[in-house]
């Protein structure tokens, strides 16, 4: 019974961590209908950067968070302006070319990281203790990351629904032509969204590397994991992504405990393909369109 409760708590917390890593992808998809295949590599890059800051400068992941986020913000901005904005084709052709471009980008980022950090697994020993909640021991690092994930999720939600800039981003996601008719500079908004999404990936990486050891080739798995999550939640749907994150966290923790770690790594992909086939619209479906 205690085991079950522990697994549940761990699953929910891991869900928070997964959410943290997927939020940027969700923001970018929501606004631009673009899936950035380099998203996972951005996370790894942010994480390895935090690792170096820790190794060389003794910075904690919390302190590295804004630095990693800031760097990835700039990289995201450069990618959007230099690459994605240059693809002018519309419809399926545009989608395809964007996909291929981010496919190439993921190799560029992953191998640039490889050049800088090599291929070893890296991790930051940070918040190694455990918080005792009754009979259940919760690892501190997991708790902090998870709480931060919800913090970030809440912040993004407030930003998108309460501030005028955030609302502009939200509006552009719903109708680009409508936004342009409101005098909004869509190009600038798209760049902002992509840069922010990338920054969120970088920031997430800086925190998560204290929980999961990263290697430069981990990026692809993280991309699929993040995409699974937002697809399960209904692409661009924020409450849906949260629900999906919790489900995924629980699924993985339970699979790991009962079936072993190989099965746990496979379960993400199984869920992923299952979602694509059976619920391509996500768990919550979509808001009715005008």
């Amino acid at each position: 019974m205690i085991t079950f409760a522990t697994l549940c708590v761990l699953g929910l917390l891991w869900g928070g961590v997964y959410l943290l890593m997927a939020e940027g992808l969700n923001l970018i998809y929501g606004v631009m209908k673009v899936v950035n295949l380099a998203h996972g590599d951005f996370i790894v890059l942010g994480g390895l950067l935090a690792f170096s800051l820790f190794e060389r400068g003794g910075l904690t992941p919390i302190a590295a968070f804004p630095i990693a986020a800031g760097l990835l913000f700039l990289i995201g901005m450069a990618v959007q302006l230099g690459v994605l904005e240059q693809i002018t084709a519309q419809g399926p052709e545009g989608e395809l070319r964007t996909l291929l471009a981010t496919f190439g980008l993921s190799y560029v980022v992953a191998n640039a990281s490889f050049l800088l950090w090599g291929s070893q697994f890296q991790s930051i020993p940070f918040l190694q203790g455990a918080v005792q909640a009754g009979p259940i021991a919760v690892p501190e690092g997991l708790l902090v990351c998870s709480l931060l994930a919800f913090g970030v999720a809440l912040l993004v939600h407030v930003w998108l629904t309460r501030t005028i800039t955030g609302k502009s981003v939200h509006a552009t996601a719903q109708s680009a032509l409508g936004a342009a008719s409101c005098g909004l500079n869509i190009r600038r908004i798209r760049t902002l969204a992509f840069a922010l999404g990338s920054a969120m990936a970088g920031g997430a990486g800086a925190l998560v590397i204290s929980l999961i050891p990263f290697q430069t080739s981990t990026g692809g798995d993280l991309t699929v994991q993040a995409f699974t999550l937002i697809a399960l939640g209904g692409l661009g749907n924020y409450p849906g992504a949260w629900l999906a994150a919790e489900l995924l966290g629980l699924t993985e923790v339970f699979t790991q405990y009962y079936l072993g770690s190989n099965a746990a790594s496979a379960v993400v992909y199984v869920v992923f393909i299952g979602v694509l086939i059976f619920r391509p619209q996500g768990l919550l479906g979509r808001v009715g369109r005008v």
Binding site: I164, K167, S168, H170, A171, Q174, S175, L177, G178, A179, S181, C182, G183, L184, V287, G288, R289, V290
Partner: peptide, 16 residues
Amino acid sequence: RQLFPGMSVDENLEMG
């Protein structure tokens, strides 16, 4: 029409 369906009437007008 190109409205923002997930936003309220107020918010739609605000964007204008």
